[in-house]
Structure formats: structure tokens, C-alpha cells
């Protein structure tokens, strides 16, 4: 009776394929963490250790202090936070305009936002390099903050306008009826209701800046200005790759992205669904 039909059915159609796919998902993460905690000599030693026999944090110390991950981390953080601030301000304003006003050129503006989604990113690196070279901003975090904001704003504007449309206009009008000014009604009525949406938008933007590689590679040529992806890539490009430090550096880059992701994960399915459905 243990293996009745229903249970066998569920095993074949759900648990078995799901656990296979989850194993595939987890395996690279597991292997990176495993490698990061092995001492230098054990990494290449055969038979391979599937759990570190002599766990150590040497690789993390080495990556953080000697290879410069402390600097890469700081650079990524500066670019990420600044971009999130710019994007949130701009996209809340433009999202509000799209959600609440009828104006001439609205359709044109929305079409413009849509068009940007088809611009090949690789297409931008040569002209961006020339523009920021002329502005004297190569290897300056400002060039990345500006570019990332421009890249992210179209999508986040659409996202924010969706969130703002979800706040009933009547609430805002009622607050103004009760004597609030326009700004007060935005601050005390609309903003608190929008907060989850704003947080989700901020998280998506931050993850994008944390992960972006090609533009950062093109616009940065001094090692002390590298962001994490460029730093990792330069490590992989070396002739003698230090695998332990590479794994440790990967874990360092991984942690903030995973934490933020775990936090915003619930909004992801809802927000994405809304954005895709239009």
C-alpha cells in the first residue's frame, strides 16, 4: 500500500524531475563554495575532494586583500547604490506621469521606451567609449552610473507606472479633499502604498548593475576602478589562474546578489508577470 498509484504518479511527474532540475541548479554553486574552502594544494589533488578535507578561509583572505576584491566590492557598491537612487527618482517621476496624466506625446514616449528594449547592448560599447573619452570620464564610476541609469530607466518606468496605476486615484483625491497639498498626498498616501514596488524596482536595478560586464569592461581600464565582474574576468584571463581565489572571489560576488534576490523573489513572479503581460 505504500506505493499506491497516486504516490508513484507524483514521484514520476513531480518529485523526480524537480529534484533533477534542482540538483542541476545547485551543483555549480556547491562546487564553487567547496573549492573556495580548499587549501591551494588540495584543489588539484586527485582524487577530487567532494567536501574540503582541510577547510580554510585563506582563499577569501587572499582574494579580499591581495587580489583586490575589497576594492572591486567597494566600486560595485558605489556604482550600484548611486544608480539605484538615480533610477528610482527618474522612473517614479516618469512612471507617475504615464499613470496619471494624459498628455501630447505620451504614446511617442512609450514607444521610445519600448524601442530601447531592442537596442543591442554590444552595439553601445564603441560609441559609449568615445563619448566618455571625450568627457574625460573613462575609469570614472560616473560613466557607469549614467550609462546604467539610461539602460535601466525604460524598463523601470514601465514597471513603476504599473505599480502607480495600482494605487487608486480616488485615495489621492480624497487626501487632497481633506486638505493635503499635492506633495503631501503623494508623500503620505501614495508613497507608502508604492513602497513594495519601489523596493522591488530598486533591487532589480541593483542586481543589474552588480552583474553588468561588457560596458564596465569597456569603460574601465584601471584596475583600482574595476567592478566585481571585471575583476573576476581579469582573474580568469590570467595565464596561471588561481582557482582557490577565483572561487572565493565568486562567493564574495555571489552573496549580495543572492541575499537581495531571496528578499525580492516574491515580487519577481508578480512584477515580471505584470510587465510581460503589459
Amino acid at each position: 500500500m505504500i506505493f499506491n498509484n497516486k504516490k508513484a504518479d507524483k514521484l514520476i511527474t513531480l518529485y523526480l524531475p524537480l529534484s533533477m532540475m534542482l540538483c542541476f541548479t545547485i551543483f555549480p554553486l556547491y562546487w564553487t563554495i567547496n573549492t573556495a574552502f580548499k587549501p591551494e594544494g588540495d584543489i588539484i589533488k586527485r582524487p577530487l575532494q567532494y567536501l574540503p578535507a582541510n577547510p580554510t578561509i585563506d582563499n577569501f583572505v587572499n582574494a579580499w586583500t591581495n587580489i583586490g576584491f575589497a576594492t572591486f566590492f567597494k566600486n560595485s557598491l558605489i556604482v550600484g547604490v548611486a544608480t539605484v537612487i538615480v533610477v528610482l527618482i527618474c522612473s517614479t517621476l516618469s512612471g507617475y506621469a504615464l499613470a496619471r496624466y494624459q498628455f501630447k506625446g505620451k504614446r511617442g514616449f512609450m514607444l521610445m521606451l519600448l524601442c530601447t528594449q531592442f537596442i543591442p547592448r554590444a552595439m553601445m560599447i564603441i560609441p559609449l567609449f568615445i563619448i566618455f573619452k571625450n568627457l574625460g570620464l573613462i575609469s570614472n564610476p560616473l560613466s557607469l552610473i549614467i550609462t546604467y541609469s539610461a539602460v535601466e530607466i525604460p524598463f523601470t518606468t514601465i514597471l513603476m507606472s504599473g505599480f502607480i496605476s495600482g494605487v487608486p486615484k480616488e485615495l489621492e483625491e480624497a487626501a487632497m479633499m481633506d486638505g493635503c497639498t499635492k506633495l503631501q498626498s503623494l508623500r503620505y498616501v501614495v508613497f507608502p502604498l508604492l513602497l513594495p514596488g519601489i523596493v522591488a524596482t530598486g533591487v532589480f536595478t541593483f542586481i543589474y548593475t552588480w552583474n553588468e560586464f561588457l560596458i564596465a569592461l569597456m569603460l574601465t581600464n584601471q584596475q583600482n576602478k574595476f567592478t566585481l565582474p571585471v575583476g573576476l574576468a581579469s582573474m580568469m584571463g590570467e595565464f596561471n589562474v588561481n582557482y582557490g581565489a577565483l572561487a572565493a572571489g565568486s562567493v564574495i560576488a555571489l552573496i549580495p546578489a543572492i541575499l537581495l534576490f531571496a528578499y525580492a523573489q516574491k515580487h519577481l513572479v508578480n512584477g515580471m508577470g505584470g510587465a510581460v503581460k503589459g
Binding site: 552583474n211 565582474p229 573576476l232 546578489a257
Partner: peptide, 9 residues
């Protein structure tokens, strides 16, 4: 949530 570079490494 994992970048292309991180996945590469």
C-alpha cells in the same frame, strides 16, 4: 540573479 561573469567563473 547570477551574472554571466560569475556563471563563467
Amino acid at each position: 540573479a547570477i551574472s554571466g561573469v560569475l556563471a563563467s567563473s
